[in-house]
Nucleic acid binder design. Structure first.
Lengths: 195, 195
DNA sequence: CTAAATCTGTACCGTTCGGTATAGATGCAG
DNA sequence: CTGCATCTATACCGAACGGTACAGATTTAG
């Protein structure tokens, strides 16, 4: 334990509070006063613990990926590629509309369009979306190597399609679409894929 | 012609300039100084001609729908529903990545997540998205009535699916995806629909 | 040519933004 | 108990925000 007065809050706890604010209002829409109010700490404590707003957002994004966004990795770990993709899209409908959380996906609507001040956050989220799409692609390529995917299927194009449907579902969720509506979208996409 | 000094600019011209700014930065990311600089007019002129920022955004949105967004209506006017949907998604790939314009769709990323000050713009865009989806649904229902659509197809669910794919494509475009990539998404969606 | 009406430009309003200096409180090491 | 390191809290900073008052310029109506 380092010398000096110990921190009076848990970093993870206040990060979760900050996540809720960024999730609901986006990077630029979340003011520092919103953040400190929700986190229950003062401004200098925030800066001492996390650095500036941009660094806080990075930390929040990482926590988002490892927390609410972790279902993606679990879905892709399904043994068959058919089950993996189906679980991914079906659980997306649940996760994007989970009660008690903001609707939609932080990585998608957290900073889609913003001023120059938000360009870094915008780039962070775009990179995260690319990473998720790359994870889907890697899973499809593995399936192709294992003979679990028809050889005429293009893993790159299919991964982009799946990611695109997911992103559209996130927009729908942010607009208030219900879980059942998103489930319907997922089923229609899966029916078309007929993996 | 009304008495008094005439306006020194064309409302439509400066609306197009404002559209570019809102499209690129979103409602909240577009500062009044950005807008007046791009429009080439002073702040009081803006307020006299359009009212406050929110009213300007409404006017810009309407011009967007009637201008860059008008391809949706034209695509849906195709005689066969198969051609209508195919043209809608294929032209979306072109329009969302058209050179010389901001990538993506104002109605989708213009105000997805924002502070309380942007709630009205957020609601306007959500309503616009619902209207577009309703237009697709109406076209599908017409096709069903005309026998142009298999009776087991649910127009509501299919319209939601098409709108969702479109919204996902807009997110991809805003992240820098190319026209060809979006074309691939459109083709994969159409192949799955096999209308 | 005068009067009324409208637009333009400057300069400013109060508020909120992200970020920080500084002082007091609270802990550990010796 | 003393010294020091770290955290908390108040109060503040300059800059940018959306919005407007006011004076001068420019037009039509009479």
């Amino acid at each position: 334990m380092p010398a000096g007065r110990p921190r009076a809050f848990s970093k993870d706890d206040v990060l979760d509070r900050a996540l809720e604010v960024f999730w609901r209002k986006g990077y630029e829409g979340a003011a520092l006063s919103d953040l400190t109010a929700a986190m229950g700490i003062n401004r200098p404590s925030l800066y001492a613990a996390f650095g500036d707003k941009q660094s806080l957002f990075r930390a929040v994004l990482q926590r988002y990926v490892e927390g609410p966004g972790s279902f993606v990795g679990r879905a892709l770990a399904e043994p068959s590629v058919q089950a993996a993709v189906a679980r991914l899209l079906r659980e997306a409908a649940d996760e994007l509309t989970a009660p008690g959380r903001p609707p939609g996906c932080l990585a998608i609507h957290g900073a889609l369009a913003c001023s120059d001040a938000g360009a870094a956050a915008q780039a962070d989220l775009a990179a995260q979306r690319r990473a998720s799409e790359a994870a889907i692609r890697a899973r499809l390529e593995r399936a192709r190597d294992e003979g679990d995917l028809a050889p005429e299927v293009d893993p790159v194009a299919l991964a982009t399609f799946i990611a695109t449907v997911f992103q559209g579902m996130a927009v729908q969720a942010a607009s208030g679409s219900s879980r059942d509506t998103l489930r319907g979208v997922a089923e229609m996409a899966l029916a078309g894929l007929r993996l």
